[in-house]
Computed example of a mutant assay.
Amino acid sequence: MTDINVLYQQAITLLQQLIATPSFSKEEERTADLLEQFFHTHGIKPHRKGNNLWMYNQHFDAVKPTILLNSHHDTVKPNSGYTRDPYDAKVEDGKLYGLGSNDAGGCLVSLIAAFLYFNREPNLKYNLCLAATAEEEISGANGIESIIPELGKIDFAIVGEPTQMHLAIAERGLMVLDCVAHGKAGHAARDEGDNAIYKAMAAIEWFRTYHFPKESELFGPVKMSVTVINAGSQHNVVPATCSFVVDVRVPDGYSNEEVLATIHQNVSCEVTPRSTRLKSSSIDKDHPIVKAGIALGKNTYGSPTMSDQALMDFTSIKIGPGDSARSHMADEFVYVNEIKEGIEHYVAMLEKIV
């Protein structure tokens, strides 16, 4: 096995190169090229589709179960609050600065190091599949979702996002609903028309007050919030339509489709989901990877943020070096000792099961 200190130094160098290479969502070609070249130098020829790369351990055995190690190499655009060059990957006072350093570059290079640590081992109990993917920040169709059918059977995934190396064992799903209440136009001065605003008010009140029977231990109930409303054109015309938007956060225990079916049964207005693909996820506390993390002193929690877990149709856990509170902030950074700990703890968790 490769020495972890060597892997750590390689990870820091790789992360500095990634930071120095702009990789906004949908524009990750150069970081994909950089990663591909990095793997070639380690004797690995990765599969590539678009800006997604994936590979398997050297002694892959189709009979064995497979663990997916996944993180992303796209970033958001730097915000206006930056006081540093977002692409100048300097280490100062133990902090590695730069756009994408924390979200999720530190996680990605730590998972890559963990994969390389095990890659040449001949007698693993599990196969390892490493995927460095695109478009996570926008949940894009050309990211992880586009390659899942090509990965083969995945038994569970470790998704690298900054969690301070604690165990995010659940995520909420998301649906955005476009709703339209239909009435009939008329003159406001006469008893004419059928006011669509009043019809919308009845539906909005249902969204405000309805409680789904099941509640998540980690997240509580399904949360529905009306966030946008539009109706009317002038003061003396009864509006024929009233449109509004509902943000729906779906905890573990419900599918998006189940929640949507209940909504359709209870409101009379037109309801159209923009998508149902961003699903809730959870992993049992008795799962071997969770037990391995707890044995290392990790806490478990439900994550308030969304990741590529929402697009996975298999069991997954989210864990990685860095702090979610630093994601997308100005002058983003990750502590270099967080990356060292990330590599060590990924390896230690996997050693308990592979």
Rank of each mutant, 00 (worst) to 15 (best):
M1I: 12
N5E: 15
L7H: 01
A11E: 10
L14D: 02
L15M: 14
Q17N: 15
Q17M: 11
I19H: 06
I19R: 14
K26Q: 14
E28Q: 00
A32N: 00
A32V: 02
A32W: 00
L34A: 01
L35K: 07
Q37D: 15
F38W: 08
T41R: 11
K45C: 08
K45H: 06
K45T: 14
K45P: 03
R48G: 13
R48Q: 14
F60R: 13
I67P: 02
S71H: 03
H72F: 05
V91I: 14
L99E: 12
G105S: 10
F115M: 03
F118H: 06
F118K: 07
P122E: 01
Y126A: 02
L130M: 14
L130P: 00
L130T: 05
E135L: 07
S139P: 05
S139Q: 11
N142C: 14
E145L: 09
S146K: 09
P149H: 08
E150K: 09
F156C: 09
F156Q: 04
M165F: 06
H166A: 00
L167D: 02
I169F: 02
A170T: 04
A170Y: 00
E171M: 04
R172P: 04
V176H: 01
C179H: 03
V180N: 06
K184W: 02
K184H: 08
K184R: 03
A189L: 06
D194K: 11
N195I: 04
Y198G: 08
A202I: 11
H211G: 08
F212H: 13
K214Y: 13
V226K: 05
I229L: 09
N230F: 07
N230G: 10
N230R: 13
G232R: 07
S233I: 15
S243F: 10
V248D: 05
R249S: 04
R249L: 13
Y254G: 12
N256D: 13
E258L: 10
S268T: 15
C269E: 07
K279M: 15
K279I: 08
S281P: 06
I283R: 00
P288T: 11
D308S: 09
Q309R: 12
A310N: 10
S316T: 03
K318N: 11
K318S: 03
I319K: 01
I319C: 01
R326I: 14
H328T: 12
H328G: 10
F333H: 13
Y335S: 04
V336F: 06
N337P: 10
E341K: 09
G342Y: 02
V354H: 05
